[in-house]
Every structure is written in C-alpha cells, then in structure tokens.
Design a protein around this nucleic acid. Structure first.
Length: 187
DNA sequence: GTACAGATTGAG
DNA sequence: TCAATCTGTACT
C-alpha cells in the first residue's frame, strides 16, 4: 500500500510530524526512474524562539521565507557552500517551523549513501530548484506511507547535531531516529 | 563593498 | 583535524 501524504499530515505539531516521518518514504522522480528512501532520522526546528532555527527572532529573509509556509512545502538551502539541506515546513501558515530530514535508508540497496543531510540531497538529486515545492502536489518529489508502523519505543530522542552555538536550545531533544537502524548519520 | 560563520562531509 | 566552497547577514 503506497499512499501519498497530504496536507493534514504536515499541518500538525512539529514534534509529532518529526516522529511521524520516521518510516515514511521519499519518492523522487528523476529521468523516468523513482529514487526511493525510507526516512530514518529527523530533527525539528521550532522558531522563532528556537535559537538553532533560521527563523530565530522572527526574521524573514529570501533564504528562510519557505519556513513560514504551511506544512507540506520544501525548505532547501546550502550550508558550508557545498551541501544542500532538505527541510519540510510544518504546522500552519506564518509559523516558522520545519523538520530537517537527516538520513534515509535507500530502497533496494545496502550502501549508506543517504546517511546524512548533505548526502541525502545528493542521493535524491535535489537543489535550489526545489525551493518551496509543494509535496502534496509535486510530480517530481513526494512522501508516501507504505503502511509501516514504527513502535514508540523504537524511536530514540536525542539532542540535535551541529548547533552548539544555540546554547540552551542545543540541549532540546528534538532529534529523532529509529533504534538500531544502520542508516542513520554518524562519523 | 567586504568580512565571516555556517542545521556537513570525507579524506588524512 | 581540516579544507572545500558560497550565501546571507552584519558590518564599513
């Protein structure tokens, strides 16, 4: 059973969406093929109070404005001048909240080729042209529910990565991943 | 106009 | 441990 996720999935509390995304599948149509991967690791960013969020303080720039869209749109941006980061807007219009997709388990292969936010975008062939893409309508990328349920006690909740500058917000346990999964990000 | 840090990664 | 490489932001 493959069913595309709709608006009502994304337009909910961000922490629930971040957990709900585990075990869901990203489908990317590319050159007539489908590149697919199961989401195994996510992080929630809840602005404007969250210091680690690009929307901290309620600021709006041409880079971060997609975070303010209602749930179900892509917020993608470049870090370190090299790597793209795939985020999905959550909650409702005007609320700058999103979920960063950090790792995928590729469908049909065993390599850890999408185990990290930068690697995952390379695997899915994503770039700035996906900025603001509507995941509920797009013909080149969307998310599906394949009927897999991740048990509550198989979801690990930890501190987010790479945001030590965010002080007390760096300690928030807003990173979620599937326990014992070989495809989560690590060094 | 210029300087600089950053939600990372893989090589050494 | 470090460099790659570029954009937004905060200055001059």
């Amino acid at each position: 059973m493959r069913k595309r996720l709709g608006k009502n999935f994304y337009q909910r509390d961000t922490l629930r969406v971040a957990q709900g995304l585990l075990g869901k599948y990203i489908v990317r149509k590319w050159r007539g093929r489908e590149i697919k991967g199961k989401i195994v690791e996510t992080e929630a960013y809840i602005g404007p109070q969250d210091k680690a969020s690009h929307a901290f303080g309620g600021k709006v720039t041409s880079r971060n404005k997609a975070v303010y869209l209602p749930g179900g749109y892509i917020y993608i941006y470049l870090v370190y001048g090299i790597y793209w980061q795939l985020n999905i807007s959550t909650s409702f219009s005007g609320k700058p909240e999103c979920v960063l997709i950090r790792a995928l388990e590729p469908v049909g292969r065993k390599e850890r080729i999408a185990s990290g936010p930068g690697k995952l975008c390379r695997y899915l062939k994503l770039n700035k042209s996906f900025y603001g893409e509507d995941l509920t309508k797009s013909k080149r990328i969307w998310l599906e529910d394949w009927g897999e349920k991740i048990k509550r006690n198989n979801i690990i909740q930890k501190e987010r990565i790479g945001i030590n500058y965010a002080q007390e917000w760096a300690k928030k346990p807003w990173r979620f991943y599937i326990q014992n999964n070989m495809f989560i990000s690590h060094r």
